[in-house]
Computed example of a mutant assay.
Amino acid sequence: MRVDAHPGDDVAGLVRGTRGESVVLVIQSGRDDLAQALALAAIGPLAVERAPDRINAVVVGEGAGAAAVEAAVAFLDAAPSTTGQVLAVGT
Rank of each mutant, 00 (worst) to 15 (best):
E62A: 14
D53V: 09
P7Q: 00
Q28I: 09
R16C: 11
G84T: 11
E62R: 13
A39N: 11
P80N: 03
R31Y: 00
A51P: 13
L40M: 12
H6V: 06
R50I: 04
V24T: 13
L34A: 14
G17W: 04
I55H: 05
A64D: 04
P7V: 01
P45R: 06
D10F: 02
E70Q: 13
N56F: 11
L76Q: 01
F75T: 15
A72G: 07
V58H: 04
D32N: 08
A12N: 03
F75D: 14
D4L: 12
A5M: 00
M1S: 11
L25H: 07
A74F: 01
A37S: 10
A71L: 14
A42D: 06
A66Y: 03
V11H: 00
E49Q: 11
G84S: 11
D4K: 09
G63S: 02
A67P: 09
A88R: 15
V86M: 01
A88C: 08
G13A: 01
T83Y: 14
L76E: 00
L25V: 12
A47M: 14
L34N: 12
A51E: 04
P52D: 02
L76G: 04
H6G: 05
V3L: 14
G17K: 08
A5V: 00
D9C: 05
R16V: 04
D77S: 10
V48H: 13
P45H: 07
E49P: 13
D33M: 10
G8V: 08
T18K: 04
V23E: 01
G30E: 00
L87K: 05
G61M: 10
A57D: 00
D4A: 14
L87G: 06
D32Y: 08
R19W: 13
A64R: 04
R31D: 00
G44K: 15
V89C: 05
A72C: 10
V58A: 02
G61R: 09
L87M: 04
V89L: 03
V24E: 04
P52K: 01
N56R: 14
D32C: 03
